[in-house]
Design a protein around this nucleic acid. Sequence first.
DNA 1: GTCTATAGTGCGATAGAC
DNA 2: GTCTATCGCACTATAGAC
Lengths: 195, 195
Amino acid sequence: MATSEQTNAVGSSSRYSGVKPRTIEVALGLFTEYGVDGTTLQMIADELGVTKAAVYHQFRTKDEIVISGAEASLARLEVVLDGADDAADPLDHLLSGLIDLSIDQRRMINLLQNDPVMSRLLGQHERYGQLTQRLFRGLTQNLSRGDSRVPVAIVMAAIGGAVTSPLLDEGDHDELRRGLLDLARRLLGPGELRS
Amino acid sequence: MATSEQTNAVGSSSRYSGVKPRTIEVALGLFTEYGVDGTTLQMIADELGVTKAAVYHQFRTKDEIVISGAEASLARLEVVLDGADDAADPLDHLLSGLIDLSIDQRRMINLLQNDPVMSRLLGQHERYGQLTQRLFRGLTQNLSRGDSRVPVAIVMAAIGGAVTSPLLDEGDHDELRRGLLDLARRLLGPGELRS
DNA sequence: GTCTATAGTGCGATAGAC
DNA sequence: GTCTATCGCACTATAGAC
């Protein structure tokens, strides 16, 4: 077990030895626990067992680490959106994919939605704005224009918040998935449901 | 307009001139925009038009400002919980109160639920743990023990997240209140609803 | 109750040897 | 690709004059 094990779970184009994705993985773990601002490069370096300078050899700034982590997550969302375009039931495909993604990457989702530093960086990120718009259009495709914002806000909040709820653990994920899907279909599906 | 204007909107026992609640108000505004870690005492002082030393005359540490802000919010939650105990329909009273409170203090709610510094401080805060337990018991009073955690997590996430959604503004609050109340009644009320 | 000034610390980031 | 060492800066918090 020395030269193999090249997971490449984090999207990037160049062929690297695995230290860069490992750095991102460690950084995201710390970001989700302490926030981006609350995580120092010294903490990341310590967890990796190297010095700050070694981390700065992989990433030129702290912001670059944050963005690299976010982009891996956005790429997965893009796959779901692409798949929904061609699906028989686009809304249902989108909801299933979004919920599975959120449970699978639940710590990252919380970071994307709530961390102030992440929000600031993503606000300047072109692709993020495009994905947000595509997601909103996909979620509202069965609603009339006037009453779409509130149900979408509720569904997005429920998904993004419940997957990181301290009340739940891994054993609840199947039930959580069903509960969220049921809720989302009710609020965003065709038909009249609101009072 | 020099000596009067004594709002006292923020709970504290001593009689102070209004600078202390004003400091908390300014601080909370900055905390919700930049996070607790991203807000410096210099920023708070600048917004108040004084120096850092003047702020430190009111609060001994930065943490004390954070906790003072949280306690004002927790006091309001406690009032809602107390009222629900004596209400004809305790669950409905609790839900209405919780949702109104969340919309009214929506920036604070987001801070309480998501800011890492706030979470760390509240974790050491005795009264917060008691209130969390009372809230959970109040929300699950109509559910059987086995299936309570997931619906509560979903309802709490939906309320706490939707009230700060960037998709909504003040004009949507009435519709949001109805949507959240409807959702919460469905998931937490008596009767069988899940698949 | 506010100010100026500063102590002491830890941060992001860089230089240069190996 | 990792190290030691350090720069410049911003931070929390304090001292002491007014």
